[in-house]
Design a protein around this nucleic acid. Structure first.
Lengths: 195, 195
DNA sequence: ATCTATATGTCAGCTATATTGACATATTTC
DNA sequence: GAAATATGTCAATATAGCTGACATATAGAT
């Protein structure tokens, strides 16, 4: 999984110097000293998050180039590999892009035989997506590259901080999304119901 | 700071089913049981990182829309705000984009009076970038939005995990980049030289 | 003083990835 | 049979990146 980040289209018209200021609750730091320091700490995290993600996605980019694929292909391949039998609608929901955007990329993956689609057994309107053998291989290679970075990080970190990484990332997810995400994770401490 | 993530252009030609397989050291899990479980854990982190980042950048997108700016503007504005007097070359180095790409976005920020450029005092070839008053206001508003997420997360996390978040993100950064990043952080436990 | 290197700007064309809107088809459900 | 659903497709557009070529101003070196 690489960039996995979609573009949000901006409005056409750059707003001149008269743009409406933003509501009070969005305003920057103006409180007392302690709040300011908290803000400085959180600000550093914002920036660290950017750099960490930038380097993280860089790993996969180099491998993807060999196949002529981009980050969009990576995203699709990753989730199809992780959730074999995924219907189109579920994929759209995960990626939060339009079906038109997905279709171009998905068609390339289907044509190049990295992903295949079978009609759903229960609902034949659905096209369930599966990785092909070589699709699965590439997905694994990409995932191995990226999880190598995490493994290195976990080693660098003091033992008591290791579990915290997953908890931290999980807490960063929108609250109303967490259940769905948790359901997809493979038996980890966050996966919970490990029957 | 929002997406802050650049696109890596893919090669033109989608590779057919005959693509060269990737070298052995990139291969997926094939080792013994323990290694597999480590992999599963790291795989979950890969996915969590995606979802966390996806939601994280979503916060700023909504605000940026009001101004007709996109993520590229956010990145520029953020770093200009964070490092006032930043020369063009330094900005290019942080963002890792070409000057042509930067210029389109930067020009819009200059025209809309969110950023201003002054000739360098020591080297007059340089254009040093500063936020204007309204540029600084927007940058603060955006940063406040995003650091609010971090503050919420830090509250949700058990106290002993709080410091771990910054350490984790920092460890995720390429080793040869860390010094430079550290130099920019504002007096935090990672900032080190707090003279 | 001139030559060269550096910092930056700009033009032109291309690519990847997203968007919206409209419409088509197959299948399921009521 | 009608309506709703899952998906595909065509067309136009926007954002944000890229390469390559060339222009200008300033700095530094000989």
């Amino acid at each position: 999984m690489s960039e996995l980040l979609q573009r949000k289209t901006a409005l056409r018209t750059p707003v001149p110097a008269t743009a409406t200021p933003c509501p009070r609750e969005f305003r920057g730091p103006a409180g007392p000293r302690a709040a300011r320091e908290e803000d400085a700490e959180a600000l550093n995290l914002v920036e660290l998050f950017f750099f960490a993600y930038r380097d993280f996605v860089g790993d996969a980019d180099r491998l993807l180039e060999n196949y002529g694929f981009g980050r969009a292909h990576h995203r699709v391949l990753h989730f199809v590999h992780r959730r074999p039998g995924l219907p189109i609608a579920a994929l759209l929901d995960i990626l939060r892009i339009t079906k038109q955007s997905l279709n171009r990329v998905l068609k390339q993956l289907l044509d190049a035989d990295f992903v295949e689609a079978r009609a759903g057994a229960v609902d034949r309107r659905q096209r369930l997506l599966y990785p092909t053998a070589q699709g699965a291989r590439l997905a694994r290679d990409l995932a191995a590259l990226q999880s190598a970075r995490f493994r290195r990080v976990l080693e660098e970190l003091p033992p008591e901080a290791r579990g915290a990484a997953a908890a931290f990332l999980f807490a960063m997810i929108d609250a109303d999304e967490r259940d769905r995400v948790r359901g997809h994770l493979q038996r980890s401490e966050l996966g919970a119901e490990r029957r």
